[in-house]
Amino acid sequence: MNFPSKLIEEAVQELSKFPGVGKKSALRMVLYLLKKDTETADKLGHSIIRLRNEITYCTRCYNVSDAAVCNICSNPKRDNQVICVVEDLKDVMAIENTNQFFGTYHVLGGLINPIYGIGPDQLQLESLIERIQKEGTKEIIMALSATMEGDTTIFYLSKKLKDLDVQLSTISKGIAIGDELEYADEITLGRSILSRVPYRNQVQSGSND
């Protein structure tokens, strides 16, 4: 792509580094900013600079936080005895949106994947173990992706936790609500039959109860 201006070229270069953003989308963003008044660009620029410089992580759960301890950890209504282990911030937000979980979180910051150069040391695993020992946690809920890397991470943690008096559970894997059985893939269907649960009469779409 040829640009009439070095400034535009530079901005496009930087913006196209975002995941899912190509050169064309980046150019569209640049042109949009040029059309708007300078204040729009100033605001955007400042928010990005502040975002990177001022962001902190909760010292307890390693979730993104504005203070030393995050909102969830400092909320007295949350159950401190239950920790939900997730990969990143996106997962915390997803689980919070369900309104079904009232414990606290622990954000690992990734999953074990040696090929991508991610070993247990790069993740918040050691801090989780220390936290469990310190806080006397009762239950750990592993809410990780149902992938090989997720599985490896759960397996690893289960080995590390086997001598501690803490219950380890994983979120259930199976048929999504509203899905028809015939369209489920074989592995999921097979797994959900193996890990079937006793029937309890409950409203299926129960996120507002």
Binding site: N113, I115, Y156
Partner: peptide, 23 residues
């Protein structure tokens, strides 16, 4: 592939992790 990468990592100075290898 993961195991082989891990074995290379161990050789390249990353701390040997028995439990990860055992997984």
């Amino acid at each position: 592939d993961q195991r082989n990468k891990l074995l290379r990592d161990f050789a390249n100075g990353i701390t040997y992790d028995e439990s990860l290898l055992s997984i």
